[in-house]
Design a protein around this nucleic acid. Structure first.
Length: 406
RNA sequence: GGAGAGAUGCCCGAGUGGCUAAAGGGGGCAGACUGUAAAUCUGUUGGCGCGAGCCUACGGUGGUUCAAAUCCACCUCUCUCCA
């Protein structure tokens, strides 16, 4: 393998946007060695087997992987099927049901498809940690656990806080970092990437590699992306995420709803703007925030759906929310409902179309003036609709259906 | 193993026999104002029912009582201190 970029050049590209790098010197010397020998670095990225919906938060670190790959290094995408099989006991989250092998494989497939939008899947190595973890016996586990102390485990913020806050920590949770670290040993990873929240686990990998007589991996952590609410980390369970598989309109719309202060960060972490362009964008954000945000939304939409889709999404957005538009989306989801002879009440229609999860919720929406039929605000919850009627139903700002009664 | 504290709605948390679908806060949702931004204000926030009302709910099971989140018994889980 020949590298087109010199170690110095590579270092510069690879370290931009990185929060923590342990250590810079080690990375450089390894890049040099790899440059001389023509042997690519093994770059590890771990993933959870149960969440195959990749969102923009994941892409931050995936973009970094892409850089490694583009520079000619070997990218290993590790699916933690074994760790997932144990079930995550963390904090308040319900213990996940263990996944079956079929589910794991199916999830891996969907991962591949999605990652393909960012990485060259053909040149990527896909691994599952059950390959080595499943065959460890108790003696092996003892050896592993002997490498770490409770005090050191408690250094991890998450553990420290919970311990202080008297929130339970199970022993399995102590095993997690060890398992993850052992993955690095098994893979002989040169570099491991992760979000800053992974710092502790990545460092454990370093320690374990030393214990097992390997050169410790270099760790690089990327910033955590806040979700579109601007408060918490982007995650599916908090519902503040933008999935890269979502339709263009959705991606565009969700991005338009982020708080203004977040625009800069999104530009920085989610697009490939040059430092100069970034500075320009940040300068303009103060005076013309809306235009800058639209550009962001369009750009990211285009990254995952193409330029044309980005432009379309923008046009659709203008039509829906702009001053000149009619306030309706282009492609309304259709709902065909069977109407009984006596007709369907507005409440029923709302629940049947899925615009309201329950009758009570539908009633509330109605009472608060959040329901429109063909653009007209509705107040009569008992209004009846009959077979043959067709209308556009709106609930709240974002819920639309073209309702056809049959 | 011993002693003590605790488990309440999406989250935190008040509530020690009826007035409790359960205070307050957070979060969510909706409305006004906007740029599907922020800030602010207002409303709302278990399910079913047009409604009277019915059902489900305070860790679990059983009991006392006309009546239980509240009292009793047992169980499960968590935390603290001691060993």
């Amino acid at each position: 393998m020949k590298f087109s970029a010199t170690p110095q050049e590579q270092l510069q590209i690879l370290t931009t946007g990185v929060v923590d790098l342990v250590t810079r010197e080690e990375l450089l010397s390894r890049l040099e060695k790899s440059y001389q020998t023509g042997k690519p670095l093994v770059v590890k990225l771990g993933a959870d087997p149960s969440a195959p919906d990749i969102h923009l938060g994941h892409t931050v670190v995936l973009q970094k992987m892409r850089q490694f790959q583009a520079l000619g290094h070997e990218v290993v995408f590790l699916i933690g099927d074994f760790t997932g099989r144990v079930g995550d006991p963390t904090g308040k989250k319900k213990t996940r049901p263990a996944l079956t092998e079929e589910e794991v494989m199916a999830n891996a497939e969907t991962y591949k498809v999605q990652i393909g939008k960012i990485l060259d899947v053909g040149r990527m190595r896909l691994e599952f940690n059950s390959r080595w973890l499943a065959s460890l016996n108790f003696a092996d586990v003892l050896k592993l656990t002997a490498q770490y102390t409770v005090a050191r485990m408690l250094e991890r913020d998450d553990f420290a806080n919970r311990y202080k806050g008297q929130v339970p920590i199970s022993i399995v949770e102590f095993l997690y970092p060890l398992m993850q670290g052992y993955d690095s040993v098994a893979l002989k990873a040169d570099v491991e990437l992760g979000g800053v929240d992974q710092t502790f686990n990545l460092l454990v990998g370093r320690d374990l590699q030393k214990s097992y007589g390997q050169a410790p991996q270099i760790i690089m952590t990327m910033p955590i992306l806040e979700g579109i609410d601007g408060k918490e980390k982007m995650s599916k369970s908090l519902g503040n995420y933008v999935g890269i598989n979502e339709p263009p309109d959705q991606i565009y719309g969700k991005l338009m709803s982020i708080p203004d202060d977040l625009m800069g960060k999104y530009y920085e972490l989610l697009t490939d703007l040059s430092p100069a362009q970034l500075a320009e964008v940040k300068r303009r954000a103060g005076s013309e925030p809306k235009a800058v945000k639209m550009q962001l939304a369009r750009r990211i939409t285009a990254m995952y759906h193409g330029e044309a889709a980005g432009a379309l999404a923008e046009a659709g957005f203008e039509k829906l929310f702009g001053k000149t538009g009619d306030g309706l989306p282009d492609d309304l989801e259709e709902a065909r409902l069977a109407a009984p002879p006596e007709g369907l009440s507005l409440i029923r229609v709302l629940t049947m179309t899925g615009l309201a999860p329950s009758g009570g919720e539908a009633k509330r929406l109605l009472q608060q003036g959040g329901v429109r039929v063909d653009q007209a605000k509705q107040t009569d919850q008992n209004r009846l609709f009959h077979k043959g009627e067709t209308f556009i139903l709106q609930a709240g700002k974002r819920g639309f259906r073209r309702v056809i009664l049959e």
